[in-house]
Every structure is written in C-alpha cells, then in structure tokens.
Nucleic acid binder design. Sequence first.
DNA 1: GATGAATGAGGGTTCATTCAT
DNA 2: TATGAATGAACCCTCATTCAT
Lengths: 223, 223, 223, 223
Amino acid sequence: MARSTATTGGQARRIGKGVDRARQQRGELKSERRAAILAAALDEFSARGFASARLDDVAARAGVAKGTIYLYFRDKESLFQELVRAMVSPIVGAIETAPLRDLPIRAVAEMIAAVFVREIFATRRKDVLRLIIAEGPRFPKLAEFYYREVISRVLPVIRARLELAVERGELARDALARFPQLLVAPALMAIVWSSLFDRFQHLDVAELMRAHIDLLFGERSAP
Amino acid sequence: MARSTATTGGQARRIGKGVDRARQQRGELKSERRAAILAAALDEFSARGFASARLDDVAARAGVAKGTIYLYFRDKESLFQELVRAMVSPIVGAIETAPLRDLPIRAVAEMIAAVFVREIFATRRKDVLRLIIAEGPRFPKLAEFYYREVISRVLPVIRARLELAVERGELARDALARFPQLLVAPALMAIVWSSLFDRFQHLDVAELMRAHIDLLFGERSAP
Amino acid sequence: MARSTATTGGQARRIGKGVDRARQQRGELKSERRAAILAAALDEFSARGFASARLDDVAARAGVAKGTIYLYFRDKESLFQELVRAMVSPIVGAIETAPLRDLPIRAVAEMIAAVFVREIFATRRKDVLRLIIAEGPRFPKLAEFYYREVISRVLPVIRARLELAVERGELARDALARFPQLLVAPALMAIVWSSLFDRFQHLDVAELMRAHIDLLFGERSAP
Amino acid sequence: MARSTATTGGQARRIGKGVDRARQQRGELKSERRAAILAAALDEFSARGFASARLDDVAARAGVAKGTIYLYFRDKESLFQELVRAMVSPIVGAIETAPLRDLPIRAVAEMIAAVFVREIFATRRKDVLRLIIAEGPRFPKLAEFYYREVISRVLPVIRARLELAVERGELARDALARFPQLLVAPALMAIVWSSLFDRFQHLDVAELMRAHIDLLFGERSAP
DNA sequence: GATGAATGAGGGTTCATTCAT
DNA sequence: TATGAATGAACCCTCATTCAT
C-alpha cells in the first residue's frame, strides 16, 4: 500500500525542489488516502455486507472524515465496485500468461491450486471473492465485470489446456475439458466453507486442493 | 407448506362442532398465513438480500398487513432464521435414512447428485442455500444452525460410506474419504454459477454432476 | 379545514356503530393531519423558501413525526407542489363564473380588486403567490401549473370582457384589452411591496387598488 | 465590470516603475477576479436561487479555486449582498439627476419606461431585481438596502414630479401622485411574467409599457 | 387476531467553510 | 495571493417496529 513511496521517490530523486516535493507528497498522500479508504471499505463490507456497512465506519477506520470518501468515490456503490476492481484486476495475468502448454497437465493443476492458495485464499482477495459471491446477484454490473475480467479470460485458457491434455492422452476422459468448472469447484468450496464453518471444523485448504488433484490425476509422485 | 393442514386436521378429528370447526379453520388460516409470509420472505430476501429486503414488500407480497408479520415472527431477523429453518430441515432425512451401505459407491454418489438436482437446485431451496452462503457470515447463528442441522449430520454419513468404499476396495484412494467436501463442491459451484453467470453462459447442472461422477468413479456404465 | 367533520358526520348519522365511527374518525384524522402538514409547510416555506425550509421544522410545527410527512407526500418537492395546488385551485372559479357581461366594466374591475384583496391579499394565499413568484423559475412545473390553472383561465375571461367594453364604448382605448396584465399589475405590486418594504413604508393596498381603478376608469361615483 | 481598471489606473498614473506596474497589474487582476466572481455568482444565483446555488459552481464558472472566493468575500451571503449592491447602485443616478421638471409628465413617464426597458429589462439587472424579489423576504438587510438605496431615493423624486403635474394641471387626478407605485407596477409585472410565463405566452414589454402610458396619459402624440 | 398509521433513529449525501501548502 | 483537499454539520429520506383501533 505504501510501496508507491519508493517508486515515486526514485522518479523525483534529482529534482529536489520544494514545490515538486510538495506536489509529490500530495500525490502520495492522495493515493495513500484512496488506498486507506479502500482497505477500510474492504474491512467493513466484508464484516457487514454491502447494504449494512456504514460509510461512517469506513471513514473512521480509514482515519478520514465522512465527506472525504466522496472526494475519491462517487457514492457507496462506486466505492464497492472500485474496491472489487482494484483487488480483482491484478490477479488475472498470472494464469493468462503462464506457459501452460509446456507443463504436464497435473503440474498445471498444481500451479492453479498454488496460485489460488497463495494469492487468493491467503490474502484479502478471499474476502473480495466472498463479497462477489454474496453481493453479485444484487449487483449485475459486478457479476458482469467479474465474468468479463476473470471468468471469460481464465476459464477458456484452462479449458484449452485441458482439451490439449485429452488430445495428448494426458487425460483419459473429456469430462474436465467440458466442465473446467470442476477443476476450480474446490476453491469455491474452500472460500465458502472457511467463511461459514471453519470455526466448527477447520478445513485444511492446501491439503484439500492436493486431494482434489490426486483424485483427478492419480497419486502424486514423490514430492 | 400446506402440510400443516393435515396435522391440525388430525388434532380436531373427534370434535366436529361448529365452534371447533371455526377454531380449526382459524388454525389453518393461521398456518396458511405463516406460510404465505415465509414464501413472500423467501422471494424478497432472495431478490434483495436480507438487509435490503423490506418488510413492507414481504407483507404486500404475502397479502397481509405489515403489522401482521409481527404476530408470527419476533422481528426481521427471526423471520429470516425461521425461513431458513423451515426450508432446510425437511431435506436432511433423505440422505440420513437412505440405505447407503447397500448401494455401490457410484450409485451413492449418483443418488446424492440426483437429490441435489431434484430437491435443491430445481426448487426454491437453491435460493435458501444461496442466502445461507451470502448472509451466513453476518448471521453466526444461521451458519451454526446449518452446520448443526445439515453439515454435521450429512457429511459424516457420506464420509463413513466413503471410508467403507475404501475398505471394500471400491475406491483406490482415500482422498474423497478425507475430504467429502470434494464430492459436493460441484453442487456449490452450480448454485453460485447459476446465480452469477448463467445469463452469460448457461451451465447444464445435471450434466455437470454426471461429469463430476465420471471423473471420480470412471465412465458410467450403460444406463 | 375542519369542515369535513360536519360533512361526514351527516353521512354517518344513522349508522352509529363503533367501527364506523372509528373509520370516520380515522378519515377525519387523516385529512386533519394532511391539512396540518400543509399549513406547517406553508409557514416554513414562506419563512425560509423552498430550499432552506427543513422538513424537521415542518413536522414539528405540524405536531407529527418526521416520517409522517412521507405518509402523505412523496417528498419535499411534492409537498411543495401540492401545497400550491391546494391553495390555488379553489380561487379560480370565483372570477370564471362571475356574470362579468352584466356589470359595467368599472364594476368588473372593482370586483376583481375586491376579490384579490379579500381572498388573496388578506389570506395565506398571498404567501402562496409570493412563493410561486419566488420559486417558479426553479420549478417549471409549478409555473406551468399556475399558468395553466390560473393565468390561462382567468386572463382570457378578463380580456374578453375588456374587448367587449371597447366595443360597447365603455373604454375609449384598447390598451387594456391588449394587455390585461395592466389591470392586475398593481396586485402584483401589492404582494411584492408588502413582503419587502411594508416595514419601512406601509402600503394601503385597498386604497392602492381604488386609485388604480380611478386612473383607468375615472373618478369613482358616490359609494 | 472592467470599470475598476480605469480607477486603479488613475491612482498609479505617475509612478511608472516596474514594481509599481506589477502592483498595478496585480490590482487589475484583483478587481478582474472580483468581477469574474460576481458575474459567475449572478449566473448561479439567478439560475438556482441563493440557497441552492453552489460556490463550487460559482468558482468553476469564474475560473478560480473555491477558496479564492473567500479572499474576496466573507461568505456566501456576503457575496450575494455585494453582488446586489454592485449591480443596483449604478442605476439610481440616472433618474435622480434627470431634469424631470422641464419635461412634460408624459415624457417623464416615457423616460422612466425607456430607462427600465433599456437599462434593466434588457440587462442582467433584470435578474438582480428578480433575485431581490425572490430572496428579499429571507434577507432583511437586502430588502432594506434596496429600499434605502433605490426605492427611498427614486420614488420620492417621481412622486414630487407627479405632484407638480397635478399642480400644473398636467394630471386631472392625484391618484398617481398618492401611489407612484402604480407608475412602475407594469415594470414589476414584466419582470415576473418574463421569468414565469414567457415560455407559454410571450409578453412584449416595450409595447406593454407604451400601452400603460397611453392609459395614464391618453393616446400618444405623433412620434 | 389484524390492521396500517405513526414513529424516530439511522445513514447516504451535499456543500459552506477552513487551512496547510 | 491562490489553491483545492479536507472537514463535519446538516438534511432528506427510509424502514423496522409499535400500538391504538
């Protein structure tokens, strides 16, 4: 969140005027504030849901006045949408650009599982996904955004690789290629389970994903 | 929903006076009203979520006055909880009492899938599950109820049968027995996908479940 | 405003049941409440203008809770529009149905002046007119309503009578017939003057109107 | 608007140094900014009324930052008052210093009408008058200012001339002398009508004023 | 039991004003 | 002097809940 300091600090290194430093600091302050509001919004929306979250609380948590939120976001819904966008957008590239063709299909699945566990389940993005699942039906634009930016970009790539695996004989059946959703269903289960039932019965998500892959591709080789 | 008729009819069996008939009719009326309110609540909660649903709309849809809701339910949250209870409770028995031991493990899985598609996905219970997924984090009691009444009763039964399958050699691996969640993850995917993305890309849920079972147990035999 | 009591009392005379009396009283209460809110709104809008008037104050003045206003009016603007309509509508008939043709033109003018002084200037309608003048430019619908309901119905009647006066030789010039606005301009002056300058210099409006008529039609005959 | 340039230019006449030129230019800039803010304020106040006008919009229209307004005016109300003062003050002199005694009374009335049409109705001053009429009741100081600066200076002059006309036999009646408001009532009508009803029915104000004078003083002589 | 008018606390949003730069 | 980000009081409107009838 405060990484920008280093970045812009590097850019402004040799300028050194007061005015520029002020401008630079103002720019930093602005994006820091924006980030603080987004972080606070994620906390509040996660804890209470969109409708019940109060901008008063978001502002207090972000350490700004209520009106300040409206300097950065048009309204509550806008804040929500931008929060989702900001968290979701960076994640797509990883899979899209991965060299899926050159790995064995099992390694592909393991990579996807690992990315999910490391980049989503272990981070705040898990909460964002939960929000999308929970609020999507009431925010058609949100669901559409997620479909367009994530589902429609990631799923075809996975399906293509699965079809290739069928052609290559890596997979005996085309079931997975026809329903790539089956490959990621356990990830969804992990998110829902953890938010609802983990306090009653802990679910080891990394192990769940491994078991899933074992089921699909046979026992794993020696680690 | 109209099952209550039979129940109260039984109680009033041997009385048969006009007054009692009135009382009986009143009893029927009462439970019909209650059912109407619950049905309307499901519609509204499904469409707008718990926080955004308005009791005004629930009352209008149920054809009663707003105050009447409070004659049957303590408050909005109570209505929500009782709605979930009323819809969830009847479903557990089916699996609990099924003769799982006597069926091949694949047939067990097929039965579970069939029950899900027929009794949940094709009914309003799908919406109830969606509500639990979406609102559970904000209603710990609700999540607990669902865990206690459904998860903790159904999952051990399934797991026991899966463990038996491992013992019997029906299953080569214990992955599914260790994580019976993997067996039902596609059902969760079906519910979430249908509520978020079906308008962009339809998902044939029955076929999804079949493909899932093929993956787990090998190609299906001739029907 | 409380005239409705007599009316409905007459209708319900011979029924005399508690239920009906309750219903009757509820109806009365409703229209009394509505009237109280309208009266309070007139006070507040007059004193502070539309934008600065606070519905909190309207509610307090009417002796109801803030939310109650919304049971009777959609929103603040609606309350304002209905206030104007309720006060303006009853006044048109008087001139429209008066037997203008049978009176000398001077008597017609005196009647109009008398109606203005008695029914508008001496009543709350004066404040309503002031509101229309002040807020009309920001409420095109309001100006249109007033034009349609009052101006376009009253002015042509007056003009027709003035044209008849020219034909009959009652008037030497057609100036007034071409610009009937000139006949009522002093009424406008009275309203504006009284709201702005009366505390500095009192304007005797009845005498102003008489002087106006003297100027137009010559010295008045013995009263 | 740019008259201030001449004024401050006169002060700096004999100095002529660079510094002073800078100071002079700064002075010009200052009063230009002030003028720009006043012009923008007139636009916004006219379009939306005092309470609904936003200083944000005034600043944007004037091409300055919001805070800059507060360098020139104490607060929103102050800006409004000074706007009215700046626009109203210059107009009084014209009538006060006109050689009313030497013109026939009809010519006096024609002059007043001409000044109104040319200097007020055809200019932004019309909007200022409309603002005074609309907002005066909520701004006692404003009404007082206008009464003191305009009404109490212009009306007595007109009245005196009308009384002289009665003495001289130019007027048969003293009605106009007793109520000089009657002379200017059509001007008020013109302003109000144009702001409310002109889109439904256009009013030819010049012709209205001519008809008014015809009514008061008889048919006009050949032009 | 049933009604629905009434309540009033609560929250989203606006905007005049301030002040650090 | 000029800026414009920040503030927070104010206000409209909603809606769960109550209660007289």
